[in-house]
């Protein structure tokens, strides 16, 4: 995350020819880093920034990419996930973008990455001090669904007037008996700002609390940046008699047998047959490599992996991918 190394590389012309290191020009990166510093200083506050047009469409991670482009240096190792998986097309595409424009190392191993850019998930493996988690944010304003006007929302944040949100959660309980929000579940950061955790499932909300890594959030279309510094209090909204709860599955991961991860439902046939697998593809692969097994036989697991086009290449670092054979 050093500017010096970024500029050095820019002069060296590493990465995509004709473009600066990591695509954005140094002035823009500096502007974004200033906004990031402000965001870190005021946890959960949405800092407006002069978002640039990126060569990927709005809504596809332009905010996260601008944050990553501004903090990435030559020595960084980048991991990109979408829905928890490294091999979804958008994750592949963004990883390619940085491999191309910044010529940085990329990885799928959460522990090896200095920067993890994510859409819709927090990795299952714990992250540590010194790492940075960059979230792609479609809608930074947690109040937007209740109040479409920016002017009004900013006033509500300024006065810490979040009654509207509490009432909306209460209405859910009155109508459904529970809070009917399963993702983008609002949180209070540092007892001050109401914040959208981005559309991560509420399953991941507790991970944000006291998280050792720096969490940065970039919303490109809406031109906002916000942050949670390491070891900050993050509380999911709830009521004394209706405490916050995360999703639970009756099943375990069919591949690695994990009991405590977020599971994706995989439809096996048109007669209601289904199984559940970890949404975090790296976490699942690591557990399989360590010898953990789910209900699925090894041959069935291999067939599944082949069918979804998952990691079947020979691994260069000997870390992942062996489990499928």
């Amino acid at each position: 995350m050093t500017t010096a190394s970024a500029e050095k590389t820019a002069e060296n012309g590493a990465g995509e020819e004709g473009y600066n290191f990591a695509y954005l020009d140094e002035q823009t990166k500096r502007m974004i880093r200033r906004c990031i510093l402000k965001a870190v200083a005021v946890p959960g506050y949405q800092v407006p920034f002069g978002g640039r047009e990126m060569p990927l469409p709005y809504g596809w991670g332009t905010g996260g990419m601008q944050v990553t482009a501004s903090i990435i240096g030559h020595d960084d190792t980048l991991k990109v996930i979408d829905q928890g998986a490294d091999d979804t097309t958008n994750a592949v595409n963004i990883r390619r973008f940085f491999a191309r424009t910044a010529a940085v190392d990329t990885t799928e191993v959460t522990a090896e990455a200095s920067i993890v850019q994510t859409r819709h998930r927090v990795p299952e493996d714990p992250m540590t001090e010194g790492q940075i988690l960059v979230y792609q944010v479609p809608q930074p304003e947690p109040l937007r669904k209740l109040e479409p006007r920016e002017i009004e929302c900013r006033k509500m944040h300024a006065y810490k007037e979040y009654g509207l949100m509490q009432v909306s959660l209460y209405e859910d309980i009155a109508r459904f008996g529970e809070i009917a929000t399963s993702y983008s579940y609002p949180v209070m950061v540092n007892d001050r700002y109401l914040m959208s955790p981005t559309p991560i499932p509420k399953f991941d909300n507790p991970k944000m609390h006291d998280f050792p890594a720096l969490q940065l959030f970039g919303a490109g279309r809406e031109k906002r940046i916000y942050a949670i510094p390491p070891f900050t209090k993050v509380k999911s909204l709830d009521f004394d008699d209706h405490p916050f709860e995360v999703q639970q599955w009756e099943e375990n991961c069919a591949l690695c047998g994990a009991e405590d991860t977020f599971l994706d439902e995989v439809i096996l046939d048109d007669r209601g047959g289904k199984m559940y697998v970890c949404s975090d593809s790296h976490y699942c692969a690591r557990r399989r490599a360590e010898g953990h097994r789910g209900t699925l036989s090894d041959s069935a697991a291999a067939a599944y992996a082949a069918a979804v086009g998952a990691a079947d290449r020979p691994s260069e670092d000997g870390e992942s991918a062996e489990w499928v054979t």
Partner: peptide
């Protein structure tokens, strides 16, 4: 239209995780 086109079409991106969360919720409800 660059913003609008991007955001409307981002619905093509995977939303497995959110959809799974909604499945869980609607089953529970």
């Amino acid at each position: 239209n660059v913003e609008a086109s991007g955001f409307v079409q981002h619905l093509k991106l995977p939303h497995y995780v959110d959809f799974q969360s909604e499945l869980q919720l609607i089953r529970s409800l």
